[in-house]
């Protein structure tokens, strides 16, 4: 069972919204004072991979990350959680990509790894919130794909999968190899153990440049984009919150109710 998990390094989405800033060029965002993290959505994919490997009793999990300025202590988190290998697509040429250029590079790298049964991604990334990378990889590699997965049971060369819907879930059967995007309903990602952290320290990531995966630098990163970003901005909330007052919490609550009634809110 060879499982590939695509995870990315992102600015910390759980940092307080007030530390979120966009640079003067209006293209890049940062969380001031908060270090980057492994995408929490991607961690669910890592958790899913570990569950599948445990159920199979054997297998190899390879984490795959693309970007620039990848901090080893960040991108090694999947290893610390229990993944076996780490491949980094790290080169200036990979920077500033969109769904197309990212999926193209990841698909080329996955092809180069040779053997794979399952390719897992988060349901979306916490920065772009697009949810295209998984389906894109599937389309490029000609593989079936199930999105928003909350449970995976592999039996032979088929997987029975539960897919989250707004009203409940669907049960889907899909032949392997397949691509799946994993939703948070898969269960809380496990914390790295001390043993896992020690093991991760000893694993050296494999670093590939565009030439290593047989792809032209012009096809990846910013130059491989098909979608142009014209503007990145923070919406302004002009609304002011009217706070109810009073001597005790009970009085404040009663005053709020009275004010809402007065404003015909209920």
């Amino acid at each position: 069972m060879n499982i590939i998990v695509c995870v990315k390094q992102v600015i910390d989405p759980e940092a307080p919204p007030r530390s979120f800033k966009i640079d003067a060029g209006g293209t890049r965002a940062e969380m001031q004072g908060a270090p980057p993290v492994i995408d929490p959505y991607g961690e669910f994919a890592v958790e899913a991979a570990l569950k599948v490997k445990e159920a199979a009793g054997n297998g190899k999990i390879t984490a795959l990350s693309l970007g620039t300025g990848l901090l080893r202590e960040v991108v090694k988190k999947p290893l610390a959680m229990g993944a076996d290998a780490l491949i980094l697509l790290e080169d200036a040429a990979f920077a500033g990509g969109d769904g197309w250029s990212t999926a193209s590079a990841l698909a080329a790298a996955i092809r180069k790894t040779g053997e794979y049964d399952l390719i897992l991604c988060g349901r979306e990334a916490s920065d772009t919130n697009a949810g295209q990378t998984g389906p894109g990889i599937a389309a490029i590699l000609g593989l079936p794909c199930v999105t928003l997965v909350r449970r995976i049971d592999v039996a032979g060369d088929t997987a029975k999968v539960e897919r989250v819907t707004s009203a409940g879930y669907e049960v889907v059967e899909v032949p392997l190899p397949a691509v799946m995007t994993v939703s948070n309903e898969i269960g809380e990602p496990r914390y790295p153990t001390i043993k896992g952290i020690m093991a991760a320290k000893k694993i050296e990531p494999v670093v590939w440049k565009p030439a290593d995966i047989g792809i032209e630098p012009s096809q990846v990163g910013a130059s491989g984009r098909r979608l142009k970003m014209n503007r990145l901005f923070q919406p302004v909330h002009e609304g002011k919150c009217e706070l109810a007052s009073g001597e005790t919490p009970e009085e404040v609550a009663a005053n709020l109710a009275a004010r809402l009634r007065e404003a015909k809110i209920f």
Partner: peptide, 10 residues
């Protein structure tokens, strides 16, 4: 984008 912290025009 960024979980609603920002918006982008494409």
């Amino acid at each position: 984008v960024y979980g609603g912290n920002a918006q982008a025009v494409f």
